[in-house]
Design a protein around this nucleic acid. Structure first.
Lengths: 249, 249
DNA sequence: TTTATCCGTTTTGAATACATTATGCTGCCG
DNA sequence: CGGCAGCATAATGTATTCAAAACGGATAAA
């Protein structure tokens, strides 16, 4: 919530730290899509002046997390279903490309790391059902699996673009919504095959699987989002009443 | 270098205009890679205070045209050959994807526009040789051809990423270095075939040609750049003596 | 000769002050 | 009663000021 407030006598806050805090607040939903970002208010809450705050907001605007209109300030960006679909389409394609590139120079150690992550997932899914306490570690494993591949590709542009997409709330695997155990098993099996294909230096096959993998998982997420748009998408005015999310004045 | 100076009594300069001016200066080479961007000096040259200038520089840093180090200021980003190769690889792939997506919903009018651009190129190349005065219009045609496709794809993320790559000095077609007439003719023939394929709604074929097209033209550019690195790339430590643009390694 | 350190200068980063633009209300007019 | 002009308010954009960090050179010691 308003965990922005800075302790007294702390090292001075830099605008870079503000970027991190604001990004976190946006991705966590503390700041909701469409929210107006009053500079004076925010600056006071975060314990800085408007200057570094504006710097941070400018950075986030360029990164696409907030929108800016001249003389009308910043507000948290809203993502339409269309935005999400388009983002997923490109992410799928880029991560597939990452597979092709990675396969060209992947080391045995990297292959082993991927297999290791697959084994972690095996263990988490071994119980035969979706348990709440396995969600977080499974998600971590998933993020690490994808990250290993697109970082390993060794193309800084590719990495940058994929990371931009991963910072979009619902495009990232980070927020994949798992409901059906069978789907998770299938998705995890994709991981296994991708690791195998990369182990055999078959980038094309890995790319094909990755393309389908991201597309399928993303489609599932989008379907669930469209069923319950209130929980994920901006237009939903918080049902918790007007008192919710009130900032201290 | 300091052609920034603003007329007196003009409408106030916004930081967005500064972004445009600085981008232009960087892409044109007025500001050279590695150049330190002194805030006081630049601000005075451009007739504004440091505040909006810093905003503009922050934006450009996020866009990747300048580099920023805390407490050490901004400097024009240097691109290594590796950066350029990686950028081209991704651009080729993304523009190919744009072809596939565009083919799904391209209109007859859009097809006609592409054919029209091809005809413009035909006219410019009709004389059978590379004439200096045709370079600019040919380049404009080229930029418009590619832009029509990747904008027409209708995917904002894809468009954004491609445009990011086009703002990298040597990755963009904007700066393609044409030397061999035969190469230009071949490149132009690629355009013709891409337009044909899109006219037949054959996105796959258009994508294949586009991938090869961008790769081939880019490779040519990179080859020429590596032959005369001094003219395009920064790392060439000027052997012309210590007075020239010295930087600590 | 080389290296380390101190101190003044320069430059950046943040805070404050000022100007400009948008916003919202009131009151008047049709 | 609806609509619009005008003013008061608030919020943004820019300029200026202040503080902290980095740079550079001179000096002193090894």
């Amino acid at each position: 919530m308003q965990d922005f407030v800075r302790e007294e006598g702390q090292p001075p806050v830099t605008s870079e730290q503000l970027v991190a805090q604001l990004r976190e607040a946006i991705l966590c939903g503390t700041l909701r899509p469409g929210d107006r970002l009053h500079q004076d208010r925010l600056a006071e809450e975060m314990g800085v002046s408007r200057t570094p705050l504006r710097t941070a907001l400018t950075t986030l605007a360029q990164a696409g997390l907030v929108r800016y209109e001249t003389n009308r300030g910043f507000r948290v960006r809203e993502f339409s279903m269309s935005d999400l679909r388009h983002g997923l389409r490109v992410r799928a394609e880029l991560e597939a490309l990452a597979c092709r590139l990675f396969a060209l120079h992947i080391t045995d150690a990297e292959v082993e790391h991927l297999h290791d992550l697959v084994r972690q997932g095996d263990a988490l899914l071994a119980c035969g059902t979706l348990r709440p306490e396995t969600q977080v570690p499974y998600r971590q494993m998933n993020v690490e699996f994808h990250g290993t591949i697109y970082r390993g590709a060794g193309n800084p542009w590719l990495q940058s673009f994929i990371e931009q997409l991963h910072s979009v709330p619902l495009v990232s695997d980070r927020i994949a919504i798992w409901e059906d155990y069978a789907d998770v098993v299938r998705s995890h099996d994709d991981h296994r095959r991708i690791a195998d294909a990369l182990g055999q230096r078959d980038g094309e096959r890995a790319a094909r699987i990755m393309l389908e993998h991201v597309s399928f998982v993303g489609a599932g997420t989008l379907t669930r989002v469209s069923q319950f748009p209130d929980e994920f998408l901006p237009p939903a005015e918080a049902p918790g009443g007007p008192g919710a999310r009130r900032r201290p004045s």
